[in-house]
Design a protein around this nucleic acid. Structure first.
Lengths: 236, 236
DNA sequence: GAATTGCCTTGATGGGGATCAACCGCAACA
DNA sequence: TGTTGCGGTTGATCCCCATCAAGGCAATTC
């Protein structure tokens, strides 16, 4: 099991954006809900340094779907965004991304094995996360999906407390969480209430989450191990 | 529009597996429903030369989800398959894949720009297809999802007939289609019947599809343009 | 302090698709 | 010719979640 895990996540250190890439691009400071301009013709590439960004789409006028969630170290190629109605990149919180021109990046990468490895590594992380997301939407109930997302956030941006407790930020709004999980915001709210009532979640301020016993949260979703493998930074 | 399309699909010719890659790997002949062995530790890479392969997972004992569908020119890295219960690669029909060792492939690619370009290009195609799949499951109704898959198959493995008609193979079984679309097989069958009754589909033998007027099929799904951009080989 | 706005919560109701069951057509096989 | 099994189809019923509506709560504005 441990071995599998190791092959999955080659190296965490590689997820820091290499200086060569930063210096050949433009650093953009992000504010909450800021839109990152998509200009398909220009073939831009964004690299997340800090904060959190998502890709939304609106297949119908009435329904938004959040397709992808980007964390520090993730790479967003405009080329990899399908031609889909209402595609938008949106920052969740304050942070920084580096914007690069695809051709220039290509040239940079030819002579810079570090940058090359960084890019390959980013893709190797992001693709399986999308597959897991797919499995969530396709095969899990509402409550299981919510637990999966909470696990993900807790592992990504949470601090471990004593006695298997975990506190973590929830930078996404209810609507955003719902659109990521393909749930109705009302339904999501109900599920969150239920989790609080059953003691899986504790009371917190807005934008924060608290799991008094993290394992209880994990037990809800059948994909607990999958999510752990994808989002844990170092073996717990 | 046309310009966007061009940037999306850089070059079709690059989707033929380079000879250097074939010769440094093992060619495997596929028979319908054959399982491709996954051996996580060994870090294999499969490249599809012909036929069709899918990745399945079983988050629960009762529900299977088909996560990914691979066409000729697609690349399957074991590293990019999440650690998910019941992960399996399965061939849909007769075909051929090349199996390569990841380290060896890495070495090959260092000195072979063609191979490098082929790999990059494959990923640039596959990632947006997964995002579109996600949008389908997340935001479309059953009927819309089915129409989307039929469009995909018609564009991938179909022949255009006179008068905007299209005939195409449906190599996937009903169960497989249902698991790809996250529908119940019964429900899928009902939807197919309805499409036949409304004249969107014509009568065919098993494993074949016939759309007397392809546009009628496209009109059903809000993602028609997305799917066209992702699966058309050359501008229609 | 009242009004406004955005976000979240909660209740009542309905619909899309899952589930369970029966049946059909067809191929494989003794 | 009967049997067995698989894949597909169709009907009856049920449930999870979407939808609609109302109300709570906090921050902001006048």
């Amino acid at each position: 099991m441990t071995m599998i895990y190791k092959t999955q996540k080659p190296d965490l250190a590689k997820r820091t954006v290499p200086p060569s890439m930063v210096s050949s691009g433009v650093v953009i400071a992000l504010r909450p809900r800021q839109r990152l301009g998509l200009a398909r013709g220009s073939e831009q590439v964004f690299v997340v340094r800090s904060g959190m960004v998502y890709l939304e789409a609106m297949p119908q006028a009435t329904s938004r779907q959040i397709l992808d969630l980007y964390y520090p170290g993730d790479v967003i190629k405009e080329q990899s965004i399908p031609q889909i109605p209402g595609a938008n990149l949106i920052a969740v919180q304050t942070g920084e991304v580096v914007r690069l021109n695809a051709q220039r990046l290509q040239a940079l990468v030819e002579g810079d094995p570090d940058a090359r490895r960084f890019l390959d590594n980013a893709m190797a992380h992001q693709y399986p996360r999308r597959l897991a997301h797919l499995a969530m939407l396709g095969a899990l109930t509402g409550e299981e999906r919510v637990a999966s997302l909470l696990m993900e956030l807790a592992l990504r941006v949470g601090e471990a407390g004593p006695d298997r407790a975990r506190t973590f930020d929830i930078p996404l709004s209810r609507t955003e969480m719902a659109d990521y999980l393909s749930l109705n915001a009302d339904t999501l709210s109900r599920i969150m209430s239920k989790l609080r009532q059953t003691g899986v979640l504790g009371a917190t301020g807005r934008g924060r989450g608290y799991a008094p016993h993290f394992d209880a949260l994990c037990r809800i979703t059948p994909l607990a191990e999958t999510i752990t493998a994808l989002h844990v930074n170092r073996p717990a």
